[in-house]
Write a protein that binds this DNA or RNA. Sequence first.
DNA 1: CTGAAAGCGCTAACAT
DNA 2: ATGTTAGCGCTTTCAG
Lengths: 347, 347
Amino acid sequence: MRQDGDASKVTISDVAKSVGVATSTVSRALTQPGRVSESMKARVVAAAAELGYRPNPQARSLTSGRTHSIALLVPDVTNPFYFGLIRGTQAQAKAHGYRHILVDTEESAEVEATALLEVSASVDGVVIAASRLSDSALAAAAKQTPLVVINREIDQVPCVIIDTATGMIQALDHLASLGHSEIAYLSGPASSWSNRKRWRALQQAARSLGVTCHQVGPFAPTMQSGAAAADAAVRYGVTACLFFNDLLAIGALKRFAERGIRVPQDMSVVGCDDIFGADFCNPPLTTLTAPIEQAGRVATDMLVSALHNSNTAVPVPRQREKLPTHLTIRSSTGDRPAASGKRADSE
Amino acid sequence: MRQDGDASKVTISDVAKSVGVATSTVSRALTQPGRVSESMKARVVAAAAELGYRPNPQARSLTSGRTHSIALLVPDVTNPFYFGLIRGTQAQAKAHGYRHILVDTEESAEVEATALLEVSASVDGVVIAASRLSDSALAAAAKQTPLVVINREIDQVPCVIIDTATGMIQALDHLASLGHSEIAYLSGPASSWSNRKRWRALQQAARSLGVTCHQVGPFAPTMQSGAAAADAAVRYGVTACLFFNDLLAIGALKRFAERGIRVPQDMSVVGCDDIFGADFCNPPLTTLTAPIEQAGRVATDMLVSALHNSNTAVPVPRQREKLPTHLTIRSSTGDRPAASGKRADSE
DNA sequence: CTGAAAGCGCTAACAT
DNA sequence: ATGTTAGCGCTTTCAG
């Protein structure tokens, strides 16, 4: 194991020379289990260790065409929601022996398109979260590069979906059962597929539950926008609100406190995602718990298995994974205010 | 821009053929500004676009030896503290045209050593945050690979340090000025360099401020450990505590609440880092605000400039950057309880 | 089972 | 300013 003059410069041919065989034999011994004799393999491995040989990934990639790395594209590394994803993909990439490349696409379709084009040349596959690209652009990209999208549903493109739409219905039900009938949905970016799905689900559910649900927004999915969202909710005279995400909800919590609106006595608040912080904000947030990290892991698994199967003729096992969410009730939701309130028009 | 039969398979020699020149000319036109005539450059660029040529990064790396990517090694991607770092390095890597590879070293020296060895072959340089490796191991690694360490001070190894030690003194001063004299420092991992630095600074400062500061711990730097830390602080009979980080402090806040210990009336709490959530936990946390993201940016800048200067004989400009912290006072600190014990009588 | 040889796509000396 | 010619380190036919 010792005695490497200066490491990294040791090539396969140094090893070959040292053992007295051809470079091809070394290559085989190191990468193709059964293609050489046991004794040969042992000698090569020993020599490689002895010399401190480290394969050059670039050279290997050049011939093999495989880089052993995957990329994760997220709209905003700043958003805690995506940290769960980063965690999941990073962990799983590592588990499969892949390097993990992280790219921030800045909530922009153009940046995303460029990043995808650039990075796809240096990775074996890509996971894209909450893509801002059009369905057709994604479908086209998927033909060029192994791709898994998260929170997006496109024909022929493998995807994992966090089913917040169904979850939102549960949340609405929860609010209805607390007596709320005037409810606001503080919506996220118009370009967000998840946002559209949720609103559609809410509309339908509201009808059958006999409550009124107003769509308000769109708002940027950030804490800062929470204040504006809170004010808008108040303006609508609702007694409860569902926020596009926890960031917005937590920002709103702050604003409500500033304005002397008590949560949940005067206003019930429901978030979405259950990000870090949702359990210790004030009051702790009732929210839709999303298996974010799991989504990252599943997406990575799908991608990796697709990469492996692309050699063999085996069809990719699962093309579409839908992950359930569940409602976590904490302290930000409560009964509808008894009467009057700040301007309940119906009472 | 159109008409690429099937993209990605277009090579530099296809472009060369199309223009009717040598591949080297194409290479130059595309990468060495002044080495070809303007008109030639234009023709090549046009042809490249026409054919949909995309350079193969692996091939490029093989000859040039440069991969245009840098790696960030962090002990735990799960820890929000590192979110800021990831953000900073990712943003700056991108700004400099580098890909950003993220590696979780699982708080383990062995994993870190392996990761460093593996990844260093495929990147131009590495940023290591809060390394668990020994000084000598890091110094050795720095000789092999361009390296910048964050929160670690080693001879000959470029580093950026977040000066929490000095900040801790401010925090202690703040507590002393509120009348606290029995104070606990709830310490982090023994292997943490920052932890050792802080405790040393606190010890000295405590003496000159005439207060008593007990070191308690070590504790894992997580929210879950916060409960144990809180209990330990109570056992010591202190009226104020400084936590190794915000995670621990926020966890402790929860525990204090459970035990009916009011913050800050019965116990003052100071965190460290000012992570996401420190401003909206309950009560909002007085903490040492650390320029984490900036640290990531600065480290990346140092690394990139070192990479560029490694060609020319110019010496690396800054080898050591110390970033100041400042105390952010929110609501978790207050006057020492009037009487003894944990029950305050005022009001 | 092993060796020889031909590149992968691109860059970098040398020529011209 | 452009063309020629070698490789970078490795994998992979194709022979033997």
